[in-house]
Amino acid sequence: MIIQALVFYVFAAVTIAAGLMVITARNPVHSVLFLILAFFNAAGLFVLMGAEFLAMILVVVYVGAVAVLFLFVVMMLDINVEKARQGFKKYLFIGGAIGLVLLVELVLILSSVVSTDVSVVASVPIPAIDDVHNTRALGQVLYTKYVYLFEASGMILLVAMIGAIVLTLRKREGVRRQVIADQVNRSREEAVEIKKVSSGSGI
């Protein structure tokens, strides 16, 4: 038990520290690397909660795809971080104040939760973790009970794809594309020329 608590605090502390570094690091590449660290530790927290499927998805999707994509974008775009950060000090005070008020309110609400009777809340039966592993549990409902949401999410992703193509694809003039038919149709005659080179005279 104590080991579990210890591991939790390590993961949690590293997640928060890495999250802070993401927004304070001067070099955007470092920010992305800290983001990856934060993802890994959040995955560790999920494992501690017994949500191993979420942990794996977090690593595979966020670290494997999203963060690497971020890294590419950050490296490809020449972002002037100092310039982007110019208004930071100006808005720090007012933004911080609003955030603090919201935080205090939410903490007060959450502390009121602890005192209430939790048994009333959990009206939906949750099977014990030993009975069904959550990967299997998800698999059992994803294409049956939640098929509507699954298909709807598919439509959302389709819209995202259409949007990305519509907003970024440009037809450029003078781009030489590979035409496989042309390549296959090339005959030996138009591709190769044989020259007789008499010895000693050069070309």
């Binding site: 709807a152 439509m155 959302i156 819209v159 995202a160 259409i162 949007g163 519509v166 907003l167």
Partner: peptide
């Protein structure tokens, strides 16, 4: 989300 995402584009 389906509605909003289409509208953003």
């Amino acid at each position: 989300e389906l509605q909003s995402l289409s509208l953003y584009v």
